[in-house]
């Protein structure tokens, strides 16, 4: 009789172990500022707003995915472009929260500011239940962004030299138009063609608007894309010089960097040459 009872207990234990999703969901937590994310609420939101593209399992194979030429994020592989953490590591909860809030410019991912902060925090926790990486690994240690030094012409010039030395132009082009010699061959980790960022077009960056965001983009890399991390190659002060120079490549986007650069003889000539004027159809283009 005793053995029969223990067998029953074993069955019960086995049955409990066979519920991985709910068990895993209990282990994953998410905190954004003072907000605590709730898995169950996040799950409801996910299956209302997200699964159409990101899929039932979060693998990016939703019903709409075949019609999208920039594929939805695969939460199962848990490789994320916009992170404050080093390449190869998981992003922080804030990074995922910010991505949902910001959306991804030039893709089909909209900005979800229509959801409350709490709802977005709930989604962050649910997304973390979709990959076992979140139970096995911790988020990376965020890359330190030192205070931005004062903007100087010399700094911009040093940044310009770095752009040449680090060969950013191989993909982004000499003028930052996204037309470097390797640009046409680039593919992302899904083997889909991908374009390097065109600075001259002056559009938004994928991972935020500020100089700090720009700093993080090249110091952490955009995982899943050809954009590598330069974190082990560039010193913090050099990184700021590069940020200031990159801003001057955005010739259609007013910034303090562009104004200062245009005030110099060298800068004025470069910016003038980079600004293509012409009709929208391209006829009568003058440089």
């Amino acid at each position: 009789m005793h053995s029969r009872k223990s067998i029953l207990w074993m069955f019960l234990a086995a049955a409990l172990l066979a519920l991985p999703s709910s068990a895993m969901a209990q282990k994953v937590e998410g905190h954004v500022g003072k907000l605590n994310g709730h898995v169950d609420a996040g799950k409801q939101l996910y299956f209302r707003y997200c699964w159409g593209c990101h899929g039932f399992r979060g693998d990016g194979n939703g019903e709409n995915a075949p019609y999208l030429n920039i594929l939805p994020r695969n939460f199962v592989s848990a490789t994320f472009k916009c992170r404050s953490t080093p390449t190869g590591t998981l992003p922080t909860d804030e990074d995922v929260f910010n991505a949902i809030t910001r959306g991804f410019y030039t893709t089909y991912m909209p900005s979800w500011t229509a959801l409350t902060h709490q709802q977005r925090a709930d989604l962050v926790v649910f997304i973390k239940t979709l990959s076992t990486r979140w139970t096995k690994e911790k988020a990376g240690e965020p890359v330190k962004v030192p205070a931005e030094p004062a903007l100087t012409t010399d700094g911009i010039k040093r940044g310009k030299e770095l752009f040449a030395k680090l060969e950013c132009w191989k993909c982004h082009g000499q003028e930052g138009r996204g037309d470097g010699p390797s640009a046409a061959t680039l593919t992302d980790s899904n083997d889909q063609p991908i374009r390097p960022y065109n600075f001259a077009a002056g559009t938004r960056f994928k991972c935020g608007e500020t100089n700090q965001d720009l700093y993080k983009i090249f110091m952490t890399g955009l995982d899943g894309t050809p954009m590598p991390s330069y974190g082990e190659q560039i010193k913090p002060e050099e990184a700021w010089d590069l940020v200031h120079y990159l801003r001057t490549l955005q010739v259609t986007h007013n910034s303090a960097e562009l104004a200062l650069w245009q005030g110099t003889k060298e800068g004025a000539e470069i910016v003038k040459a980079a600004k293509i004027t012409g009709t929208p159809t391209g006829s009568g283009i003058k440089q």
């Binding site: 592989s77 490789t79 390449t87 190869g88 590591t89 030395k165 680090l166 980790s189 890399g221 955009l222 995982d223 899943g224 894309t225 050809p226 954009m227 590598p228 991390s229 330069y230 974190g231 082990e232 190659q233």
Partner: peptide
Amino acid sequence: NREWNKAQA
């Protein structure tokens, strides 16, 4: 394994 991507001068 983890995917990463590092520039190398």
